[in-house]
Write a protein that binds this DNA or RNA. Sequence first.
DNA 1: GGGGTTAACATTGTCGACAATCTACCTTTC
DNA 2: GAAAGGTAGATTGTCGACAATGTTAACCCC
Lengths: 216, 216
Amino acid sequence: MTSYIEPLAQESTPSIIADKLRKAIGHGEFRPGAQIVEADLARKLGVSRGPLREGMQRLTQEGLLVSIRNRGLFVIDMTPEDIRDMYLAREAIERAAALKILRDGDFETVGLALLAIVDQMAAADGDPAAVGELDIAFHELLVRLADSPRLSRMHQTSIIETRMCIHALEETYLATDARAVEHHRLADAIRTGDVDRTDDLLSAHMDDAIERLVSR
Amino acid sequence: MTSYIEPLAQESTPSIIADKLRKAIGHGEFRPGAQIVEADLARKLGVSRGPLREGMQRLTQEGLLVSIRNRGLFVIDMTPEDIRDMYLAREAIERAAALKILRDGDFETVGLALLAIVDQMAAADGDPAAVGELDIAFHELLVRLADSPRLSRMHQTSIIETRMCIHALEETYLATDARAVEHHRLADAIRTGDVDRTDDLLSAHMDDAIERLVSR
DNA sequence: GGGGTTAACATTGTCGACAATCTACCTTTC
DNA sequence: GAAAGGTAGATTGTCGACAATGTTAACCCC
């Protein structure tokens, strides 16, 4: 039972704006390489350029936007090299998260929670968009349950970049069956507390993802 | 030989401000928990509050500043829990960097470059501040040579947090001998391309650092 | 036609001013 | 004397305006 009385942390406007921008980029509302025109976007969001610029600086720090002086901010364009680098970072983060759970967390509960997502994945078989969402949900849950503010924050950025990749390929991001199997194995390894197997599977999972995204 | 003709990327004002703030925080010019008063700082930096706020948003995204609405931005206060979490993230990043170097980098050259820093460390024996700087230089070089934009960006934040911890303890952060030995072993493991040993040493190195920082 | 100059336009960068909010202190009341 | 209420000061949040910069296209010259 959680108390109703808790510190009410009102989010700052720039952080709300940053969230919205992240969602928009992740869902393909801004194409890779596209310029973000401040005045237009400010009008659409119903704020002035000040707070908007502050929010955009956050995404720039994350590397989702790149700044060119006196020209503007542009959505990052994910090259194959970027995709590899992103998965390098993602694997580092998720491995650390998994390891923390296996070492001093309730890995059995976590494993079962992950398996629940895998079940949904199997149920959603055939719908690539749904499977894609569940894929991301799986990895987000894994990191969240590791209960590490820093890993979570870093992971957030990687997830947006992953979304960008998936969205760019849209219909062609297939192999839903194989992915369900990979996730099932991974969740199982965590449930049983098998460190080495988790490590290997996670690594292979990331390599497969790179392969799927870069090869085409 | 590098070409003189290269894209001239002028940094944006907010990013310059963010760099200055990071340095200031890392060197203890702003105490943990201290409020950053916009008007004062803007005057000192010779800019208006707009660009300054944009720069501060970057540090907020990194987690070096925390925002409380209508009250201001405050330098993060590193609790023992924060220290542990920071080292969890740092280990994840540096491990990935080391692994990448061992797998598809010139690990021998990297190992020698790292050993050069260890030599300086031995030469600077007795001066805790110098050893501290070299300690950080060692880890920065390791990640930089991995040549991963994302790992580098994430590592930058962790390094500032590390600096905060070292600075907070100031004179009492000792055990310079033990640290030189640890770094020497680590550099050697990389030079010889020993993946497992690198992994173990890095892990132990981080644990020791946590112990040194938290125990007091 | 190619290269260079100029001018209009669009966009970003910066600033100062005002509104909203919070804190701290003082006053009032019971 | 303690608690509630009110007030002044300081700080942050937001906005609109202006300056600086870059881009585009038309125009001119060779």
